[in-house]
Design a binder for these strands. Sequence first.
DNA 1: ACGGATTTGTCCGTATGTATC
DNA 2: TGATACATACGGACAAATCCG
Lengths: 249, 249
Amino acid sequence: MTIGSAIGSGASIARDPQECSALALERLRAILAAPGAVPGERLPTERALAAQLGIGRNAIRRALEVLEAEGMIWRKQGAGTFTGPPQDAQPQTWETISASPAGLLSLIEARLALEPQLARLAAKRAAPEIFPRIATCIARIECAEDVDSADLWDSALHREIARGAGNPLLLDLFDRVNAWRHDPALRRLRGSVRRKSGKGHAQDDHRRILAALEAGDGAAAAQAMHDHLSALHSVYLTYAQEETRAHEL
Amino acid sequence: MTIGSAIGSGASIARDPQECSALALERLRAILAAPGAVPGERLPTERALAAQLGIGRNAIRRALEVLEAEGMIWRKQGAGTFTGPPQDAQPQTWETISASPAGLLSLIEARLALEPQLARLAAKRAAPEIFPRIATCIARIECAEDVDSADLWDSALHREIARGAGNPLLLDLFDRVNAWRHDPALRRLRGSVRRKSGKGHAQDDHRRILAALEAGDGAAAAQAMHDHLSALHSVYLTYAQEETRAHEL
DNA sequence: ACGGATTTGTCCGTATGTATC
DNA sequence: TGATACATACGGACAAATCCG
């Protein structure tokens, strides 16, 4: 923009970016994570990969170096590049665990990592017009008769907070977590948890969060959100333990 | 896995359960966020949406109800469903801001929200074999001569921690953030920041994080990661302020 | 100013799949 | 294991409100 920056970042970089071996790394990870990849298999040659991904060979090499350090692959001069060792603990894909109690725990853990931070940011910079919207969500949860509707409004409440954080990237992360949350298999699991352990007082938690947001108290909002999700976490944890015990019989 | 879970998740799911209005909400959000959507425009009728999305009208209606409460749309009996009011503050898309200092700040803020939590979890449950791998990353950053390589190893270090958290969902979130981080436009911006403000002592931070992880001290790991990213944050913040001041001249 | 057509709002019957006995 | 009861989704029918000719 300014003259200084125009000089600084000169016309040199503007070329087709391709500059980053990070892209190569990302693509290679995708290849390794693909279901078709058996451990021990030989990858294409570096030159073939470079051609296939449309990336320079030294970018490929840098990325392979990282993957080797991670233990995802090993290379031998003259022989080739190989996957393995036998994928440590088979990097569980989401579809694998979504239907199990472990999936439930992973999800709530992810929310526990993310949402208190969102609440903290929202308390600091949210526009006041979100407060009545959140209140509406609480009210709708209250008077919802079917579970689907209640879940939808709960989800809307949490998203309103995420939006209030004012960071489009974080909102995108939240939406991703939220999409997992609505995975059909997980919904069923949550249903059976709900059946066995009653509703809990999530609504009190919601009101506490709203109060903290209105007060603009970031720490309190984060804490309230943490407590809210933590309660869910413990419910799911005891459920998961019961399940595994039942399986051990 | 076990017999119990096989019974639980039976062969029944294969049908199209269509149970969730959450799916409808997701799709409708996508429609509303699409670039072609001008504020005030009329959406298709509920029945048309139901047919288009392959979801029951009831589910559509529930989703529309949420969107109406959010202020994204408004409905009038007999008239139809309309977008607007004029999109409050035009929900900035990532492409819009990625090339600006604001994008840099959003990114570091997202990392600041996520990565300390990852470090905390990793300290508690990471397998010890990640420690030498992290040490390798630190060493490679040390002796990297070009920026691309250093960035790659830095990214690998942070990813190793994310992987150590042992939650596939959180790892996915991290990878998403990491992909943003390697956005070409952002890389250019970071380059000019680096040029103006020197390297900083990121390596000391890295070693502090590693020490906390090895000690299994979750709080310390989170704090160290927070400090590490916070330092970056302040660097970018002053840069962003300088930029805007330069623009004001 | 009137009336037909269209759209949201509301309700109910049916079918399906889940969980319990 | 088989049968019953329950919850939920879907689709159609009708009412109310609006738009347009």
